[in-house]
C-alpha cells in the first residue's frame, strides 16, 4: 500500500517535470537539434546549389577524410585554437572570480565599478563592434601614415590597444613601455571576455545567505578561512558554468581561427559538405574536452542538498 502510493507520487512528479521542460525541449528540438542533425547529413554529402534548390549526393566519409588527411591547414589550426583555449579559459575563470569577489565587497562607488566591468560586454556585442568599423579604418590609416610598423592596429582586437596608446601619448619608452604594452594587451583580452563570467559569479556570491557569514564570524573564522570554506564551495557550481561558458565563448567566437576557417569553407568556397565535416570534427573535439574538464571540475563542485 505504502509502496504503491510512493510510486504514484514519483509518477506525478515525473509527469509534472516533463510538462515543465516541454516548451523548452520543443524549441530546442526545432532550432538546435534538427539543424545539427541536418548538418551531419551535409557532412556526408557533396552539395550542389541550383536555382532555388540544392542537391545532396551521398559520398560517405569522403569529406572527413579530405579535411583530416589532405587539408594542410585544418589540423594545425585546430591544435592552435585548442592551445589558446587551454591558457585562456583558466585565466578568465580565475580573473572573473577574483574581480567578482572584489565587486561584491562593500565600498563606495561599487555600483559604478560593476558597471564599468560590464561595459566590454555591451561594446563587444555584435552591431556596435561592426559600427566601430569606420573607426578601425581611421586608426589603421593613421598607423599607416605614421609608418609605425611595430603596432598593427589594423585588427579589431587591437582597436583599443592600450600599450601603443601609452607609448604614443605618454611618451614612455624602451623596456617599460614594452612590458606595459604586453601586460595591458593580455589583460584587455582577458578582461573583455570576462564580463559575463563576472556577472554570473556576482549573482552567485549574492545568493549566499548573509546568515552563513554571520555564523562564521561569530565562531571567529578569519576572512581567509571564510573565503575557502564558505565562499568558494558555495559558488563552485558556477565555476563549472563559467568554465563551460568560457570554452564555448572562445570556441564559437567569430574571430576564432577555426570559425574563420569553417565560415570561409562554407560561404567563401561554397563547400558546405567540407565545412560541415570541419564543424563536426571541431565539435567532437570540444565535446570530448569539455566532458573531461566537466568531469574533473564537478568532483570539486559542492551541492548543499
Amino acid at each position: 500500500m505504502k509502496g504503491k502510493k510512493r510510486l504514484k507520487m514519483a509518477h506525478k512528479n515525473a509527469i509534472a517535470g516533463y510538462l515543465y521542460i516541454a516548451p523548452f525541449i520543443i524549441g530546442f528540438l526545432f532550432f538546435f537539434l534538427l539543424p545539427v542533425i541536418e548538418s551531419f547529413r551535409y557532412s556526408l554529402s557533396s552539395m550542389k546549389m541550383g536555382a532555388g534548390r540544392y542537391e545532396l549526393t551521398y559520398i560517405g566519409w569522403e569529406n572527413f577524410r579530405k579535411v583530416l588527411l589532405i587539408d594542410t591547414k585544418f589540423n594545425p589550426g585546430l591544435l592552435s585554437s585548442l592551445g589558446t583555449m587551454a591558457i585562456q579559459v583558466p585565466v578568465i575563470v580565475i580573473f572573473s572570480f577574483f574581480v567578482a569577489n572584489i565587486l561584491n565587497q562593500r565600498f563606495r562607488g561599487r555600483a559604478l565599478a560593476r558597471m564599468v566591468f560590464f561595459l566590454p560586454v555591451i561594446i563587444t556585442s555584435g552591431v556596435i563592434l561592426k559600427m566601430e568599423n569606420a573607426d578601425v579604418l581611421l586608426q589603421s590609416s593613421y598607423q599607416y601614415v605614421s609608418g609605425n610598423a611595430g603596432n598593427e592596429m589594423s585588427d579589431f582586437q587591437r582597436l583599443f590597444d592600450i600599450g601603443s596608446f601609452l607609448q604614443k601619448y605618454l611618451g614612455a619608452g624602451g623596456v617599460v613601455s614594452a612590458l606595459i604594452s604586453m601586460a595591458t594587451d593580455h589583460i584587455y583580452d582577458i578582461a573583455i571576455s570576462a564580463g559575463v563570467q563576472i556577472l554570473i559569479f556576482l549573482a552567485g556570491l549574492q545568493s549566499i545567505a548573509p546568515s552563513v557569514y554571520e555564523a562564521a564570524r561569530i565562531e571567529g573564522a578569519s576572512g581567509w578561512e571564510v573565503f575557502w570554506k564558505i565562499t568558494l564551495p558555495m559558488v563552485s557550481p558556477l565555476i563549472l558554468v563559467n568554465a563551460l561558458y568560457s570554452v564555448i565563448d572562445s570556441f564559437t567566437n567569430a574571430s576564432n581561427e577555426m570559425m574563420v576557417m569553417i565560415n570561409d569553407t562554407m560561404f567563401g568556397q561554397v563547400q558546405f559538405g567540407a565545412g560541415s565535416a570541419m564543424a563536426w570534427i571541431y565539435f567532437l573535439v570540444i565535446a570530448i574536452l569539455l566532458a573531461a574538464a566537466g568531469g574533473l571540475l564537478s568532483r570539486f563542485v559542492f551541492y548543499e542538498t
Binding site: E38, Y42, F251, F283
Partner: peptide, 14 residues
Amino acid sequence: TALMFSGYVTQIPN
C-alpha cells in the same frame, strides 16, 4: 552539448 555546436553550420538548416 548542443551549446558547443558552431553557429555557421546550422545556418542553412535553420
